[in-house]
Design a protein around this nucleic acid. Structure first.
Lengths: 146, 146
DNA sequence: GAGCCTATTTATAACTT
DNA sequence: TAAGTTATAAATAGGCT
């Protein structure tokens, strides 16, 4: 989207990174606002810059606190403790050796024991899988375009 | 952005609204992901559809809970902190199904490092993910049909 | 009614001042 | 360095299947 194609990795030049951050942050909020209005949705977006500054968007007429409050009340929502995040990281690290193979079979693995999921859980899972699928397709296309 | 210009107001036709919601939700998450990576930012996005379904994005490797936790601690935040923090603590205390959560998070992690995959690998992965998506949807439908 | 397609609109990277 | 401009990449509305 611009004079040149941009690789999806951290922009090393701090000045360029700051400029891009400023522009794209505005773009992201604009998009969020459009979805909220066009599709009658309630949206909250929080951004922390690398330097720790916070920016937020919340779809009118709700305050962002309201969106998060609703998030807390969502039936299947569980707030992960830091402990659990650490467990995730540890688990991912442990699996490093067979990481690729594991990823290949993860989709299969994931779908094998769905009995204990609620409808909301499954909807969330569905979304995450769709996003994964999107990313896989994107990556494949990138390779094909080379 | 499309065959016709769209007025910024709620799309009245429910079918069109749903289609637009689905497309733009994906677009919004993609944009958020790009900003997070390009600009080294931490981003959380929560969307509630008009029907109350929740969708979320959180920039890897952070979980969305982490973004919100940081939000609650931000100096400029001034809504009822005690109240909401208490709710968080309660939620965290009630949390007991980390296994399923972990599995759900895996989908997101899974797609994060695709650099080493060949096109053939990706096609296989794509097929497996699509199959998983199919099974998740099937299971969800079963629950809804009960 | 979920995908795929493509004409157009929109976002933005690099340029300019 | 910041603000405005423009060429180009990306998103997507409406069609089509």
């Amino acid at each position: 989207m611009g004079r040149g194609k941009v690789e999806l990795k951290k922009i090393e030049n701090p000045t360029n990174r700051q400029v891009t951050f400023s522009k794209r942050r505005m773009g992201l909020f604009k998009k969020a606002n459009e979805v909220a209005i066009l599709c009658d949705a309630q949206i909250g977006v929080i951004i922390f810059s690398g330097s720790g500054r916070m920016y937020e968007y919340s779809s009118p007429p709700w305050r962002i606190a309201s969106v998060f409050d609703r998030y807390l009340k969502a039936p299947s929502t569980r707030f992960e403790e830091m402990d659990i995040q650490q467990k995730i990281v540890q688990e991912m690290t442990r699996m490093n050796d067979e990481r690729n193979r594991l990823r290949m079979i993860m989709a299969q693995y994931m779908a094998e024991d769905l009995a204990s999921f609620s409808v909301q859980d499954l909807s969330n899972l569905e979304q995450q899988i769709e996003f994964s699928l999107y990313k896989v397709r994107l990556r494949k296309q990138e390779l094909l375009d080379q």
